[in-house]
Amino acid sequence: MVNLFRAEWRKIVSNRLVVSFTVWIFPIGALIIYLLLLLGVMVSEELRSGLQQQNVSWTDQMNMAWSIINNQFGRLLLLVLTAFIFASEYQWGTWKNIIPRSSRVKLVAAKFMALGAFVVIAYGSMTIVIALGNVVSTLAIGGTVSPALNDGPALSAFARDYALNAFTALCSGLIAACYTALGGIWLRSVIGGIAVGFLLTFAEESVLLVVLLLRSLIPSLSNLIGLHQFTPGYNLANIGSWATREESYLPPGLVTLLEPRSLEFSLVVVAVWLVVLLALILYLFRKQDILG
């Protein structure tokens, strides 16, 4: 499996174009932004005082950076990378070379592992660059670094939050990646994978809208609104909420309509989604005729 993983790694990392725009762009982008910022504070008094007032802690910035995986930009790049990993072998016609060499299940597993490694590297290195940038620019404008680098309790609380943020971000990324892999394998195309990835993410997000709409049209269907609580999106938000505020998450405006859900509930729902999606991918791929 180590060799198989390294084969996948090599295929991805050697494709400079794809890996530059979907992986290295994160740390390098953060680096460029901070260099520009440093340049800015050196020449502009205004920027310097603005930055002094804002004073965002490096720990908060590191935590927030993980949420990029859920915004449009981060999502698009994740889908492109996933679709590239899972569907380009169809377009190049290279499945025929590798399927006789390893089991299909292992091939898919290696692809997921490589994808995970690249996402962790992209976001992990970006948050490190962000932390360094924050500390350096704080020092550059004569501010105090907070939390201080020797503040033990603050740092251990941060480590826990950071791990949690990374975990929920990776889970939601993994679910989006599963949609994309499913689409890419089903349609045997990179673009198809990206399209299905977007469509399913969008469909998931619209569940709430749809049930709200249905409820306003047919009041007797008001129970339907609970459906929203079975989507990965709701449950990942709920897990995050439990972890940071120790209370269940309810979307604003729906507090009275929805039942609060426990952390365990959400962990189970997310796990079920992942298992079902992975099972679907394997079901589809294991019996697929490799033609081209």
Binding site: N3, L4, R10, K11, N97, S102
Partner: peptide, 13 residues
């Protein structure tokens, strides 16, 4: 590199 990737896919180096 292609041969290396294929060998590793077979689980060998």
């Amino acid at each position: 590199q292609n041969l290396e990737v294929l060998a590793r896919t077979s689980g060998t180096n």
